[in-house]
Design a protein around this nucleic acid. Structure first.
Lengths: 195, 195
DNA sequence: GTCTATAAGGTGATAGAC
DNA sequence: GTCTATCACCTTATAGAC
């Protein structure tokens, strides 16, 4: 892996991001040095600055990229006018999407305080957009009598916290398949908000 | 605050812990230096080592102390044989206890990966004890027909994740009182597991 | 018990050779 | 595009004066 000379711009860039993702998730942003990231990629520390202006940008790009992908993936889901069907879709989508990106999810929840104020504002706005998508589903269900939730935004936070918690214990090699996990959580989410 | 000489063992010890709690919660364990903690207390960095053998012990003491207090407080709650009443008690207890210690809760969830392996094992065992208390309540409710949850341990994780999420958005000065928050979450928890 | 001084080494970021 | 070398500074922890 270690090398002494060479030119690899097209592959090094993604590898820097991957290494940062893995190391930030494992040890935390503040505990990881640029030298560690460089070591994982197989270059010297100075070479990283061809791909990022600084360490902060590396973190911001990972977090903003994750939120952009999340919102883009949610946007491709077929629209449903039935609130109950929409809630089921959101629940299953959230579990499936987050289970595939545990490192990015972990960073996005743990490293918010290490974002510069300006970067924090950007990421926070994207997060709020996602939360509001669920809150709107709940409001529609209240309006048509399917749901009974006095505070849709609070209920949305509660549901998202519950669903994201899957990542703290679910392992692919574990006893339960992801489909079984989906069923368990969907049953709980459905009951928790229905009238 | 700054001083040049003196002897204050009986008050400095707690102040070191308080400063570490506040700073670790705000910036993260890895991002906080012993000099910062000393500065907050009003002593020089070297003086901290009269109160802790090292930085890691400071983190461990905060996290183990928090889990010990949590389990001790839960142990003082009156015993209830009715699973539904026990679940309501757990729900309200969890929200109230955690809302009073946002910094310790934050550290206990965010800094697990910064514990040494041995310290992690200790804290993790205490956490599992707390999770099992809720799982046992759910199993009792399944046994007497009050609840319908196919996987009590998974449901316990789901409920705890939902309840702990309150700390991410609840503020004392906000629109909703803690009692109102308790009602909202208790309604959701109750419905999510009832038959 | 707290201070100052120091050891030993790590930090992010940059300059200039190749 | 990557390297080596470096700047200026910060890190945890300890030793010994007071």
């Amino acid at each position: 892996m270690a090398r002494t000379q060479g030119s690899h711009s097209d592959i090094t860039g993604p590898r820097v991001r991957e290494a940062a993702l893995t190391l930030f998730a494992r040890h935390g942003y503040a505990a990881v040095s640029m030298r560690q990231i460089a070591g994982e990629v197989g270059v010297q520390a100075g070479a990283l600055y061809n791909y990022t202006p600084d360490k902060q940008s590396l973190l911001f790009d990972l977090m903003k990229g994750h939120m952009d992908e999340l919102l883009a993936a949610w946007a491709t889901q077929p629209k449903t006018s039935n609130p109950l069907a929409a809630l089921e879709q959101f629940t299953r989508f959230h579990i499936r999407f987050h289970s595939k990106r545990p490192e990015a999810v972990f960073i996005s929840y743990m490293e918010l305080r290490n974002l510069s104020p300006g970067n924090f504002t950007v990421v926070e706005k994207l997060r709020r957009t996602y939360e509001d998508a669920l809150a709107d589903i709940l409001r529609a269900g209240v309006a048509n009598g399917a749901f009974n939730v006095p505070e849709p935004k609070v209920a949305a936070m509660a549901v998202i916290a519950m669903l994201t918690g899957v990542n703290t214990w679910y392992r692919e090699a574990g006893r339960l398949s992801l489909s079984e996990v989906e069923e368990i959580y969907w049953a709980m989410v459905r009951k928790s908000v229905t009238a």
